[in-house]
Computed example of a mutant assay.
Amino acid sequence: MSGTERGGGSTVDAVRAWRGLAETSVLLDGFHALKHALRFGARVPVALTSDKAAVLALAEDLAPDVTRPLETLLAETDEATLRALVPRLHPTSVAALAVRPSRAAQLETLARLPRTAPVVVLDEPRNLGNAGAVIRLAAGFGATGVVTTGTLDPWHPTVVRGGAGLHFATAVERVDADRLPPGPLFALDAEGEDIRALKLPDDAVLAFGSERSGLSEGLRARAEHLVSLPMRPQVSSYNLATSVGMTLFHWASTSGRPPGTGA
């Protein structure tokens, strides 16, 4: 059931549905997360707000393309009930639950060749907010997807919050380090070749190390290319999301295609 298919239910029904789905669903925290999820085809069974008129006015101002779906989808409840369901309520006073895409479907997308945009690999990341920012960048550049190795769940609520609902605009999954998507592996490393001398292929797998430890030895050893970003001497590193953004910008600027346009 898509977000536009639900309607006519009472607030009581919507709150009951929320309580039944909360443990197994993806929390969309705030207007922008819900907006992006709807735009990119997420299945959204329930959305709640304490001020439906204000949310619809915001949609009309910032994203009129989702106004009509929101009119049908949103159920209004009182502030206390909403905060009981979503303790860390977004300032826009709206939250929704979405269905997480199946792992099989995500992995199929990531493994499909030929590929028209790179896959980003976060090798044993630790910071949830950074992971969310990377997913947002990947979606913006039209990357095929983002995979993580290690223990971090890329669909953790904090990661989804940082991604602003754009998990639904690209494939996102956790994989074992020895089961990365196919394609030539380019690993970002300070000792690598300057990225400005390279043209990254569309089917590249772009690997980035963790914020504290860098690339794992296993992944570094498997990389077909080590790549470095230009950096002023005595500066130790860039933020993870900054590194990903710089690398995807380099790919996009040399690929000859606007982001998200495909082949």
Rank of each mutant, 00 (worst) to 15 (best):
T4K: 14
T4D: 15
G7Q: 14
G9Y: 12
W18Y: 03
E23L: 06
S25P: 02
S25L: 04
V26K: 06
K35H: 12
H36D: 06
A42S: 05
A53R: 13
V55R: 11
L58M: 13
L58K: 12
A59R: 08
L62A: 13
T67V: 14
T67Q: 14
A80C: 03
P87A: 04
R88S: 13
L89V: 07
T92R: 10
T92K: 10
A98W: 11
A104I: 06
A104V: 11
E108G: 07
T109H: 08
A111S: 15
R112K: 11
T116I: 03
T116L: 08
V119H: 05
L122C: 10
E124L: 06
E124K: 12
A133L: 13
R136Y: 04
G145A: 08
V146L: 09
T148I: 01
T149L: 14
G150C: 13
T151W: 15
L152C: 13
D153A: 10
H156L: 02
T158F: 02
T158Y: 03
L166H: 00
A171V: 01
E173V: 01
E173P: 00
R174L: 01
V175N: 05
D176T: 09
D176M: 09
D176C: 04
D178L: 11
D178A: 14
R179Q: 14
P181C: 10
P181V: 09
F186N: 05
F186Y: 15
A190K: 07
D194F: 02
L198W: 06
L198V: 12
K199H: 14
L200A: 05
D203Y: 12
A204P: 09
R212N: 03
R212E: 07
S213I: 00
L215W: 07
E217D: 15
R220L: 04
V227D: 01
P230M: 10
M231F: 02
P233V: 05
Q234F: 14
S236Y: 07
S237L: 08
T242D: 03
S243P: 01
S243N: 00
S243W: 03
V244Y: 05
G245V: 00
M246C: 08
T247Q: 10
T247R: 10
F249A: 13
W251A: 07
A252R: 15
S253A: 14
R257G: 01
G262L: 12
